[in-house]
Write a protein that binds this DNA or RNA. Structure first.
Lengths: 328, 328
DNA sequence: GTGAAAGCGCTAACAC
DNA sequence: GTGTTAGCGCTTTCAC
């Protein structure tokens, strides 16, 4: 930076001002500085910048399950929005459910980010709260009651209702939900399913499961041996739905002629020609944008109240749902 | 840190030494410092640390297609190895093939990482070279001839040979490769296919494609209308293979009874019960470890020569390959 | 072993 | 508008 200043024949301070495009610098000086910068191939030192500044322009991101395309899309939105606002992104090192979320978040924090955007389905609410204390953050896809943390999430209740109405309209009355265990998001979907079935005066059958394919295969195998197969299955996510489809296929049952199946997330698997799964899509495009805006707003305005943004899910009807088969 | 020093009744410098566990500090002092640290809930400022030190312990990572489970696994290996060596990881903001790789790498660089680990399939070699000039880096899954850049990659030639021998052993002589365009990795696979077919004295039919499902559907549709369907298809990756399977299925053809299919990467899609794709797995577990070690070695030793690590692929035989159907 | 002092590359408050 | 100065939180000589 010293070099840039010398080459442009100005002081270091002025160079600094140019880079934050302050209004108090003459067009002439700005031009000279920019020119010198380009000629020298100068690259800012984000570290020094954040260290000296009381308002670092780096936001930390942690998305647990980035291999889920729904979250990858959220992430893309975050990246785009951050770029537009002139913020750098730092992503915590972690993928897969086994990584220690707390460590990752600490790494991010130690790099002095100005705020955090997290999708953290596993960390208990209280741990999250102590970890985040005093740090602006927005949580994605999880309705956690933590002060000073903003929220963006899909209305799982409404989404589940969408699924149930779709199936009920097709004539289904015997519907099983394969749940996803005890994560925040799984319980919300299950709750939504129960409520929707209640409203339709239908019995809500729930089989415990997980977010992996095997949960789907196991659940359906059990239903098969119990001779308790329903006419429709609502899986907690696409992977589980596909697991279920696989077993039905093996058993010589047709989807949707014999059993209808609905997933959740609209992942790339759901779109596969071989699968063509009816599923629920979350409003991914908006998620990232909203999250970044919430965070920047809180950081710059010093807002203290919690902001929450609940978004509707959207039913994507493909080829795994159909009319209820005639009773034999 | 000032506070920690005061609480432990020592100087700031000593605290610094303890954190880098220098040998020149007494057990007594160390204990006191560690205790004070814990009590105060001190968290290091990675920024200040990297800024002051001539040897920052943060390595930058950019993996373009993290949604590919093969790469996610590589990444997990990197994360584990980095942790073991006491290095922080910073990940560049980017997902999907449309993000500007150069920008991401620049972001990483501006955060003063001590080196880079990259999977960067799209960036031209020369751009990469200028971008990386002087910065220790290891490239994953790409055999690019850049000085001062270390390499870890799968032997695509050998992998393609594995696939071809498998199919030839099953009696196939009419094999089509759906290629992946002009990325480094696609051309290597195609080259391997051509060589292996040559060695088997078989004609090498190649259909141009891409790394997406649609490439598989398009290619097979074309083969179908041309009445030029082979008895076996070797797709550039799993996604393309599944696209191909989908179309064959629609057309009433059975896999592998009528046509055998092989993919590449052993992604989660290949493992799906509905798919059970024969494919090639790369030695993901070793990739990350090796990459981190190469990088740290170069950073600490100042080694100037290039290191390269070529690894063998492994054929995973599932249920999409079978004996060649009898000629009608 | 331990403490004092200089400085990493930048921003920010102030005077010119 | 522009230059000067003092730090941000840490590491690192270098004396003691």
């Amino acid at each position: 930076m010293e070099d840039v200043a010398r080459r442009a024949q100005v002081s270091r301070a002025l160079v600094s001002l140019v880079f934050q495009d302050s209004p108090k610098v003459s067009a002439e000086s700005r031009r000279k500085v920019l020119e010198a910068e380009a000629e020298l191939g100068y690259r800012k030192n984000a570290l020094a910048q954040s260290l000296a500044s009381k308002h670092p322009r780096t936001i930390g991101v942690h998305i647990q399950d980035i291999s889920n395309p729904y979250l990858a899309a959220v992430y893309a939105g975050v990246a785009e929005a951050a770029g537009k606002w002139g913020y750098d992104l730092l992503v915590g090192p972690g993928s897969g459910p086994d990584t220690r979320e707390a460590d990752l978040i600490n790494t991010l924090l130690s790099h002095q980010v100005c705020g955090l955007i997290l999708q953290s389905p596993y960390l208990p609410t209280d741990e999250l709260a102590t970890l985040l204390s005093g740090m602006p953050a927005v949580l994605i896809g999880r309705n956690a009651p933590i002060d000073q943390v903003d929220l963006v999430f899909t209305d799982e209740i409404q989404s589940a209702q969408l699924v149930v109405s779709h199936l009920v309209e097709l004539g289904h009355t015997d519907i099983v939900h394969i749940s996803g265990g005890s994560t925040a998001c799984a319980t919300a979907r299950e709750e939504g399913f129960r409520r929707a079935m209640d409203e339709a005066s239908l019995p809500a059958r729930v089989v415990p499961g997980d977010f992996i394919e095997e949960a789907g295969t196991l659940a359906v195998r059990q239903l098969l041996t119990d001779r308790a197969l329903p006419t429709a299955i609502f899986a907690v996510n696409d992977l589980v739905a596909v697991g279920a489809m696989g077993v039905l296929h093996e058993a010589g049952l047709r989807v949707p002629a014999d059993v209808s199946i609905v997933g959740f997330d609209d992942t790339n698997i759901a779109k596969l020609g071989l699968v063509q799964l009816t599923t629920v899509r979350q409003n991914v495009d908006a998620f990232g944008q909203v999250a970044v805006q919430m965070l920047i707003d809180r950081v710059t305005s010093g807002r203290a109240e919690r902001a929450r943004m609940r978004m509707d899910g959207q039913l994507i009807v493909r080829k795994t749902t159909g009319p209820v088969p005639p009773r034999l």
